[in-house]
Design a protein around this nucleic acid. Sequence first.
DNA 1: TCCAGTTCTGCACACGTGTTCAAGTGTTGA
DNA 2: TCAACACTTGAACACGTGTGCAGAACTGGA
Lengths: 344, 344
Amino acid sequence: MRHVSIKDIARAAKVSHPTVSRALRHSPLVRSETAKEIRKIAETMGYRPSAIGRSLATRKTNMIGVVVTTIADPFIADVVRGIEDTANEFGYSVFLANSNANPDREIQVVHSFHERRVDGILVAASRVGALYVPLLSRLRVPIVLINNQHPDEPDEFVRSVMIDNIKASSAVMSHLIGLGHRRIAYIGDKSGFQSDTERFAGYRRSLELASYAFSPELVVHGDGKAEGGLQAMEKLLQIADPPTAVFCYNDMSALGALRTLCAQGIRVPADISLIGFDDLAIASYTSPLLTTVRQPKQQMGRIAMQMLLDTFSGVESKSSIKVEGELILRESTAPPSWCDGNAN
Amino acid sequence: MRHVSIKDIARAAKVSHPTVSRALRHSPLVRSETAKEIRKIAETMGYRPSAIGRSLATRKTNMIGVVVTTIADPFIADVVRGIEDTANEFGYSVFLANSNANPDREIQVVHSFHERRVDGILVAASRVGALYVPLLSRLRVPIVLINNQHPDEPDEFVRSVMIDNIKASSAVMSHLIGLGHRRIAYIGDKSGFQSDTERFAGYRRSLELASYAFSPELVVHGDGKAEGGLQAMEKLLQIADPPTAVFCYNDMSALGALRTLCAQGIRVPADISLIGFDDLAIASYTSPLLTTVRQPKQQMGRIAMQMLLDTFSGVESKSSIKVEGELILRESTAPPSWCDGNAN
DNA sequence: TCCAGTTCTGCACACGTGTTCAAGTGTTGA
DNA sequence: TCAACACTTGAACACGTGTGCAGAACTGGA
């Protein structure tokens, strides 16, 4: 026999297995001396309850599934950490699955979670398109999307947490414009994803508000990773009239851009200002330190998990939460070189 | 009724539930037309088998547990990615749990995995002490430790994957010594962990082999993170006769050290050479690019998972695997400044 | 001593799937 | 026509836990 079951204990204690079940769960229905005796025997026999058996009986697994594009992304890793901490605190275990940014794989993973009867699903930075939410909804499992990359319609089962991109993006632009920059470039992600779209929207709106011209050649798309930022910056430097400041979609892109600038001997921020988004740990260790927008990554994970827990316990909660970013001023931004310290 | 079960399908198809079970699993025991009909009905009813029920019957969960200190560590994130990819490929789901480097929590997590009846457990960078392996072994669950931080005795249930620290460390030192450095510092992790101990052993042995003096003041302990490296480097710079090269326990420490050097206007590698360990993604985006030892992180995860799979299928395999690091020469090392290009 | 009420215990079933075994049906060959 | 065989199906049970309900055991009061 592989594992001790309550039936084994029942035999040893000369009682029935329901009595054991109740004793172990401290039910008041069982005489306290009997219960104590049973628990002692269980302890001696090295009993560990089977979550499988329990799940089958209670129709509750205390498991949640987390889908990420890739856990190797430091942004996502932080979010997952927040999720896992909260989940663990409340007795939930976390399934982790990488979709590798492959929509088919992502859907397959969700089905696998469904078959395991997880109590809820969290999805970080989904890359799946418009039909996704209805598909998820059909599973009738509570779901929270974190920084979902496609606009989602409200839904009974699908909730969401995301950062207020437009607001944060506007803060970035205010900072740069306030320093005196007029030619500000934008290095984005691959086209079509929501956080890119929204941050770009904030960029454009800020230019308009300041009555500055929008120059399409100042907008370059990377891939959200360092390599893309590196190449995007190379392109920007080839323009006849290059920008004096660059707003990067995220810190990884900024890191790549910084690399290009450094390799070409261009000083940051003396020659060009650079600003990122996310506030990854690395942003505090680059040279110069990177000015960026802090996303409360762990907290977003905690909030998402908390939304699930609320759903489980029937607490009514908002179907969509927007968190605020915070502009972190460090060393990578300064007034443009032609500007002697005071803007315009 | 919440989920469709094989009994529901059985009713609809006017057969018994064992027949449905067999039909869905393409058993040759059921007539092919019947099977086809049953599968059609299952499809129509939106049936998804319950992994819970199946696990209970088969005593196999196709789940594995992964314990990490924290998923926010980029080294560990890469390892986990390798694990998850391989697991997914073979139909296994992965539980992820952070121990936050807290031994009690780590043990608690292992028990939780045990209760969920995972088929195997992977532990990355365990911080639990000597009694750990016997404890794990008592669970009678196959376990693979990855870069375990305490020396482990061979055991029937507990296997391990680790990097050959001494060899890699020696390669680092050969490189620095070959460049002409004689005063080489070592920035370590907190004392007492195996990878630190071994890398330090390689450091000392290399000095001995070269007949260079070992100076205790050149050895400083950080915390394995950037902050620790930063402070350790500050200490090193206060020495009367500072080192011309610094071997950092890992890339995060090196990143911190680099920050200190940069802040104090000390040029790398012109004034001081710096070398890391791990080859994190960031190492390719620092200025200067960081020379380091590449650990095959994802591959280590794959190997560990493969060892579990081998155990499941009864394949005999080695109980301990050592993988080799690879010295990656980039820009952060050069001959010492007093040395005109040719060593000694 | 007996009854009513309380406290405790066990039977039977449920949850969803898989497997063994016996029995049913149809086929082939003598 | 019958036996031997292959093919197909379903009854019964297993896996480990939880729960409604009936009944047993105990308690206290008259």
